[in-house]
Write a protein that binds this DNA or RNA. Sequence first.
RNA 1: GUGGGUAUAGCGUAGCUGGUCAAACGCGUCAGUUUGUGGCACUGAAGAUCGUCGGUUCGAAUCCGACUAUCCACCCCA
Length: 429
Amino acid sequence: MALLKRPNGTRDTLPSETSEWQALEGFLCETAHINGFHEIRIPTFEHTDLFARGVGETTDVVQKEMYTFEIGKHSYTLRPEGTAGVVRAVLENGLLNEALPLKLFYILSCFRHEAVQHGRQREFHQFGVEMAGSSSPAADAEVIGLANQILTEAGVGNASLRINSIGCPTCRKQYSEALRNYFAPHTAELCATCHDRMERNPMRLLDCKEAKCKVIAKDAPSILEYLCDDCKAHFAQLKHNLELLNISYTVDSRIVRGLDYYTKTVFEFIVPDGDGELTVCGGGRYDGLVEELGGNPTPALGFGMGLERLLATLHDQGITLSEPDPCCLYIVPMGEKAADMAMKLTNQLRKEGSAAQTDVMGRSLRAQMKYADRIGARFTMVIGDNELENGEAVLKNMKTGEKITMKLGDDFVDRFCDIEIADRLAAEE
RNA sequence: GUGGGUAUAGCGUAGCUGGUCAAACGCGUCAGUUUGUGGCACUGAAGAUCGUCGGUUCGAAUCCGACUAUCCACCCCA
């Protein structure tokens, strides 16, 4: 029978990798908490309508990348991102009635059916935060500041922040009109996708990678010239706040973001990747989304951070977050009586929280020592007839080769734990 | 979705002008080098229908086609 393989674009996280994920997730939770964000967990799938309305009908994500399935009369979709579901949960559970601003974070997997390649999977993991209730640029700065803190403290030394404002519905409408007017004379030269963009979302015209379109887009008007007074002031204040926080940034008026719900501030953190660059974190303000999903008008903002991309970036820089914890004591029994003793001792050690192991393969002493070395056991101890008779055994430090004679009495476990802790401390220095 | 590259044991590779290839090498795994201490070395073993299906041929890992997977570019995004 042929081996079944995992679906394209998914990944197995192996035992050698999970400790790093655990470390990363722990670090993210802790940093979020320090910043006053609390975790929320939401379903893996939602009603399809939620994403159609929340993410936007015109987006690529909704139009061609969603995992949608029908059960009975209902249509469900695996979440392609976190924000829509979180906002839905906030409204459904009345969280906006609690002290504002509401500050939430999440770690979850997202699903998008798109072409798989480097830095892009069909199931991937995101850390994200959402903050609701504040329309102040101070909130924008706080959210961007959190992303910045995470990247910096994780050790990403080469991330750069780009910000832009895409205005509110009022100024965006005017800007879209201006763009259409600008591109209209060039319609014939534009690529097919851009014709589509003219209709649906003119701001994407700026983002086209076609050489021809790029040339035309180069001199297109900038959104920043079309911002209304309110949006202009908001953006100016955000820049001031970022400077206050000592966060360097560049303004990039071509940042558009692929999800329809953004208003005013949009931003992304970018890291070099081969010849190009990769967005490791993207987000912005979405003042219209809560109302769009049926709540009272409430300003909000957030970001999503791609965890696979973040880990890959760290690895590129030679950073490993955590190594798996090895076995601390491997007990080598010789003979049946010794095996009984080893099993009991191992069990006692484990009850005290010590990662002890012993033979379950019936191996020779030599083979057991090899195995202990292979799994990185820090100590080994041989128990045979002599030891059972004398009530003493030799504890061997596998790294230094140092040997300590230990009494096998009731307090063995306690004494071993002391030695193990001392060894661990010595290793750290 | 469009275009291109790749596809050989758990991993990394060699072989690819078709016939000593019922496939080799390194790492890893297992056993052993005389039942009392691992790393090194040595010996041996297990493990591959050469991605899948079909075609050309007396004969295909080797040539051709389709499919699938994977990588890259575009699109888009975390």
